[in-house]
């Protein structure tokens, strides 16, 4: 674990000022420097991610011109479209003009539909974010509860159920689970809608009804992963000296489990959360297609089919930002939990 602060947060909340007076004068400057370094790394990651995406799509011959020209394509028309889109320019120049646009807040327009990419993102991003958020919430809430049951009731029926379910949950692919859920809970029993999505802003009831199955499909592996990690971590923590010491002081029940065991077991679990967020963001691509959800996942799938570069690029950029920000938050959390990892 690096000890530099994540770029998204000012170092102040990270570092409760234990003894401000004793703080060496150079420390604040050093902190600012690490912060700047971190911000640079963040930006570099974004540039790298989008450039690699750009380069990979271009690597494949064939281009949006054929998609745009449609079935009436003539070589002249194709050349015309290519020139119009700047596809005849060198790769770096193309990337450069795209990046310059982004810096000025201009994501361009979809080559396929002519809509503004920023507008598309504004429509799709909330859907995907709410799906990822629900799945993460599910993974944390249910995963933590299950992990506790699995550890405390280890080797007893409840614990075995948790362990078994977690092993299964990790192995099941999300699209398959999605199809099974739809078959059972939308077709056999018409309890939930088979496809589609309702925005959170349009009413909580409808939102929940539509979100339940995709959230389960997307989040199940996360639940299993969190439960398994937490159970393992707790079982290890239970044997720790400080648990015995706490019990010797008369601490028991919730205080013992939450303040002593869970907090310590939380450290590895938080690391898992970071990886989980990456997986969830990637998983939306599959789950949104299975449930016909109008989010970033279906957007990028269509965009790839249509070679809609500006859309692909924007989605890659946004997903990279989500992942980076989420991981920065996880790192803050990590530092919050464990005082041994601090800004130095």
């Amino acid at each position: 674990m690096s000890t530099a602060p994540p770029v998204t947060a000012a170092p102040v909340p990270l570092q409760p000022q234990r003894d401000g007076a004793a703080r060496p004068p150079g420390r604040r400057a050093a902190a600012a420097r690490t912060l700047a370094l971190r911000a640079g790394a963040f930006l570099a990651t974004l540039v790298l991610a989008t450039f690699v995406a750009f380069w990979l799509i271009k690597l494949v011959p064939g281009d949006p011109a054929t998609a745009i020209a449609g079935e009436n394509a003539t070589p002249e028309r194709l050349a015309e479209i290519r020139a119009q889109l700047g596809l005849d320019k060198p790769l770096l120049a193309q990337y450069g003009s795209w990046a310059a646009g982004v810096v000025h807040g201009d994501f361009g327009t979809s080559l396929y539909s002519g809509q503004s990419v920023a507008g598309l993102l504004a429509q799709r991003l909330p859907v995907t974010l709410s799906l990822v958020f629900c799945s993460l919430l599910l993974a944390v809430v249910v995963g933590v509860a299950a992990g506790i049951v699995g550890a405390v009731r280890n080797k007893r029926p409840e614990g075995r159920v948790v362990t078994g379910a977690a092993t299964l949950g990790i192995a099941v692919p999300n699209f398959w689970l999605g199809l099974v859920l739809v078959t059972v809970f939308a077709i056999w029993n018409p309890w939930f809608p088979a496809t589609g999505f309702s925005r959170a802003g349009d009413g909580a009831g409808e939102f929940l009804r539509f979100a339940v199955l995709p959230t389960l499909a997307l989040g199940a592996a996360g639940v299993a992963e969190v439960a398994r990690q937490l159970r393992g971590a707790l079982l290890e923590v239970f044997t720790a000296d400080y648990i015995r010491m706490a019990r010797a002081k008369g601490i028991s029940g919730t205080a013992l489990l939450v303040r002593h065991a869970l907090r310590n077991a939380g450290v590895p679990v938080v690391t898992v959360l970071g990886l989980l967020i990456n997986r969830l963001v990637g998983g939306t691509v599959v789950v949104e297609v299975v449930f016909a959800i109008p989010g970033m996942g279906t957007l990028v799938v269509d965009a790839v089919k249509q070679r809609d570069y500006p859309v692909i690029q924007a989605v890659v950029l946004v997903m990279a930002v989500i992942v980076l920000v989420a991981n920065a938050i996880v790192e803050i959390l990590y530092r919050r939990i464990d005082p041994r990892i601090r800004l130095s």
Binding site: Y242, H260, N264
Partner: peptide
């Protein structure tokens, strides 16, 4: 206990 490093909760 013997080892205060491990018997005190590090967090």
């Amino acid at each position: 206990f013997q080892d205060p490093m491990t018997a005190l909760n590090p967090l």
